[in-house]
Design a protein around this nucleic acid. Structure first.
Lengths: 146, 146
DNA sequence: AACAAACATCTTGACAGTCAAACAATCACT
DNA sequence: AGTGATTGTTTGACTGTCAAGATGTTTGTT
């Protein structure tokens, strides 16, 4: 049994609206840090990559970010100049670098992560425990689907 | 009663992941149309503005998109060159133009809108009627909150 | 009517983000 | 050792972006 068209249209509209709001929220938060959203995105990916184990090579990072390695080269150049990122030579492959956050970069990442947690906290504050649990479960399903 | 920290962190992570997936989905879809995401975003805002009644002035459109009018000028220039948008002089204010989709622009907008509906359909296909209803209600709350 | 202030848009100059293609160094395999 | 694949960088061209200045229009005040 398929949901009626109007319900689909409504949900589609809501998803777009949620996306837009998250987008402008992120833009506001990032602007206050002095970085661009693309730069902060890089910091976030590198930061999360570090949590999940090892530092990333340029190529892996580029793939995760959906940009070419050429684009990433200048991006990393600038973040390295700002003391947020550093290249360290790969131990066994001399073509590659491992990209990691400096201490300054880690602090920035942690601070930005806190912003995310605070927003999520605001969101959950208006949901009941059941709503929150179901919302999380539904998100899980959707993320696996897309 | 506040939700425990780990739940917040989990939900925060899910929201980021959803955002990323929607982002790359949109990028893929838009790329196939030959436009940039910024251009498609312009088409979408103008298209939705038209549904909601009147065409928009440059300034109103710039505000909705979160860019300056200077940025929008060249954006509209290019979309006009491609025959997707047109400026028509404002009836009573000779400083202003009203920006609207051409027929070609409307077709593109409709086509893109269909992509959104199809994605939403895929999403709802894996949700029960109750889940879908609650998800929509939760989104409603969240959108109002952010 | 005349003027000034506010306004809408466009233009210019500067820079970040982006890609494709060419390049250089290194690796992996035979 | 040699050849083809891989990794990262460089280059050239273009879009997206803003701030600041320019132009023409409207609005309000005298």
């Amino acid at each position: 049994m398929r949901a009626p068209m109007s319900e689909i249209a409504k949900l589609s509209h809501q998803l777009v609206e949620l996306y837009e709001k998250l987008s402008s929220w992120e833009q506001d938060v990032v602007k206050s840090s002095g970085l661009s959203t693309a730069q902060m995105h890089t910091i976030e990916i590198v930061g999360h990559g570090a949590q999940g184990g090892g530092a990333l090579r340029m190529k892996e990072l580029a793939k995760k970010m959906g940009v070419t390695t050429g684009t990433l080269t200048v991006m990393v150049d600038r973040l390295e100049q700002q003391g947020l990122l550093q290249r360290t030579p790969h131990e066994t492959d001399r073509r590659s670098y491992l990209i990691a956050l400096t201490e300054k970069g880690q602090n920035l990442f942690a601070e930005h992560h806190q912003y995310h947690l605070r927003l999520t906290e605001e969101i959950t504050a208006i949901l009941s425990a059941e709503e929150q649990a179901l919302f999380s479960a539904v998100l899980e399903k959707i993320i696996g689907q897309i």
